[in-house]
Structure formats: C-alpha cells, structure tokens
Amino acid sequence: MSFTLVQVIVSGLLLGAVYALFASGLTLVWGMMNVVNFAHGDFVMLGMYTAVVIWTALGGGPFASVPAAAILIATLGVLSYFLLVRHIMRGPMLAQILGTFGLALFLRYAAFWYFGADFKTLPDTLVGGSFTLGGVRFEGARMLAGVGGLAITLLLHVILTRTAMGSRMLAVSEDPVAAQLMGIRPQRMQAVAWAMAGAATGIAGALIATFFYTSPTVGETLAIIAFVTVSFGGFGSVLGALVAGLIIGVVESVSAYLIGPVYKDVIVYVLFVLVLWFRPQGLMGKA
C-alpha cells in the first residue's frame, strides 16, 4: 500500500469523525421524539458563523469558538423546541416536516441578510502546525476537528447509555406516559435532548469552520451528509452515527482517489442503498 493511499485513508477517517459529530445531533433528536430536524444543516452553518464572528471580532481561535458555538446553538435548539417543535409535534406528520423545513429557510435567509452571500474563511494559521508520522502528514486543523469530533461523539454516547440522565431520556423516548408516571418530565427531557443535540452541532460547526469555507448555503452541502450518515448508522443511535460517519468518510476519500471525484458520491450512495436494502433500520438501529 502506498503512502498516499494511507494518507487518503487517514484523511477520510478524520473527516468521517466530523461527519459523525454533526450527524449525532440529528440522530439524538430523532431517537428521542421521532422528529426529523430539517434545520440541522443550518444549525451547523450558524455554528460555523459563530467561529467566523469570534475570529473577526475578537481574534479568538477554536478554544473560544467551540464553547461559544456549543452554548449558542444549544440555546437555539432549546428555543426551537419550546417555540416550534413542541407545538408541531401535536400536529400531523406533514406539519412536523414543514415546520422544521420552514425554520431551515428562516435561518438560512436570516444569514443571507445579516452576513451577506460572500464566502468567509478562517485564516489557516489559526490552528497551525502539522507533523509527519511514518510518511503520513497530520495537519493541525483537521486533527483537532477529527479528534474533537470523535471525543464528543463518544462522550454523547456515554451520557446516553451510562448515566441516570441518559436513562431518563431513554425512558421518555420509549414511553413518555410511563416515564411521567415514574416522575420524569418528558418535556424537560426532550428540551435537554435538543440542547445536547444543539451543542454537538454547534461544536461540529466551529470545528469544521477551521478548514472549510463558511457561507449561508453551506448547511445544504453538509446536511445531506448528516442525513445519509444518520440513516446509514440507524436513526437514534449515536454509536451507529459514529461508525457510519467513519465508513462514509473513508469510502468517499478512497473512491475519490482511486476512481475519481465525480464518482465518489455514486459509490457512497450505492453503499447506502445496499445497507438499507439488507438492514432498513441502519447498521445499529433497532428493528
């Protein structure tokens, strides 16, 4: 195996970890309350703009922008839950779909209005440095994003499966009425889920902004990946999103390298369709 191929696989894994992080917020909300958040890509976009604003206004790097984006987008998540999602959940399925879709358009065009249509990028010196290990080059911004993505996705998984809070959330997702009889407040748990999903999404945005471009429509490009990752890994499973994200990242990179960039999406989607064919619930979803 050539060094270049190893390099391609490494970069695919690092990218996949970021995919996993911004898919985990989506899968969490779905698993909790069967709501698909179509505004998810635009949450990522706002996380990216948080990083851009913190750099241009305050000169702050990711260590300032990651917590700030986490708090801001978590707040946005909670607000969206109380002001919009809680109400449309009582309506028909179509209202749920169009409700968050409307939110997506609102956020996107608000960004057009406030930030303008220009592409923004962060200076690449913000997360400087790189090192070479066994002929493979690791670059600062991508390492930070990949390792950060991996760590936060795993943390989310641990919170959901190993803590009392996680158990309460699981109880609400399985049967809100029974959970309420046990003294758990479903709405509070659902709001917590939106906050956690928002925080993860905001962090993903702030991390990806260090090596990507930021524009009001960037959410569209990224949301597709998030939706594919979530259904590939299984709706509701954070661990599934992690595995799926890593697989998609590597398959995308390797096929772009070996076959050609215009074919990489074909290969990813063929794989995606095959997985759904044999396991409609996704890799780790519950049947």
Binding site: T4, G12, Y257, P261, V262
Partner: peptide, 20 residues
Amino acid sequence: KIAYSANSSDVQPQVLQLKE
C-alpha cells in the same frame, strides 16, 4: 485530467492524487 463536482465537501484525495 480531473473533473470534480463544485459542491464537493472535501478535495483532499484529489490534491493527494496531484501530489503523487
């Protein structure tokens, strides 16, 4: 000759191809 789609989310494999 490398053709790619303009809304790609990642171009690293192509740059590595070029480097090679």
